[in-house]
Nucleic acid binder design. Sequence first.
DNA 1: CGATTAACCTGGAAGC
DNA 2: TGCTTCCAGGTTAATC
Length: 288
Amino acid sequence: MPELPEVETVRRGLAPVMDGARIRKVRQHRPDLRFPLPQNFVNRLSGARLGVLQRRGKYLFSDLSTGETLIMHLGMTGRFTIEDEESRQPGRFEHTHQANLRHDHVVFELESAAGAGATVTYNDPRRFGFMDLVGTIALEECRHFEGMGPEPMGNGFCAEAFNTALKGRTTSIKAALLDQRVVAGVGNIYACEALFRAGVSPRRRAASVAGRRGERLQASIVAVLGDAIAAGGSTLRDFAGADGALGYFQHRFDVYGREGEPCPACGAPVRRLVQAGRSTFFCGRCQR
DNA sequence: CGATTAACCTGGAAGC
DNA sequence: TGCTTCCAGGTTAATC
């Protein structure tokens, strides 16, 4: 469920206990998530020291002292909980409402450089998330990262590159934004929000956006993601931000989930349509 | 070849 | 109350 801002918020929440920590033990409660967990997953992790937790698109990853890299994806409903082992107190990265324990699939028991213990639990009811171990040397070419588009908050994402990626595409601009090869990390919510901010119709052919509209849309993507990250990541349904507070950025969505409500810019009712099997929310008057 | 659709799962909300 | 239907922030194999 989480898109780039939420994954970045998760990264920031986990980093204090994961960066540089040693993995004492891993508990694996089932053989698979979306995919089978790697062979000997527990043994390949146990005893390893974690590097710095990083993010690429909607993926989290951390190098290990073993020469492998742990890659994690949250799917739609994946989330992490931190518990402080010594005090038995939930950490600041606790869900607002109790997660169903039967969906706690992987538990990392960690020990910081200072010797403090912490438990990081991965919970995922729908199991669309996954974890993988790949050789660190071949990380860029691994099946998860190969072909992924530029990081929207990085130097590689500029209007020129964005327009180039859109040229020749006959699919809708909405569907193109969801294609991780065009730009990494944008999902259904922020695709809708970026299109609204840019005043671009979600039904427009992607190729027809290249140009002035593409420049505006590229800037809108950066702006809306930046706002969401600054707000601590949006929260919706079963996802809680790093501080556990629900209802953060969700109140600031201009069009997503607001079918029938007035457009914040012109007052016309926000409309909903289905594209590529996903709901699109937009203003038919502001977005052309 | 690119573009769309169906499928993977569970749980919560809405409708009857 | 209980049952049914629809919907959900993602990805990808299968199909058009």
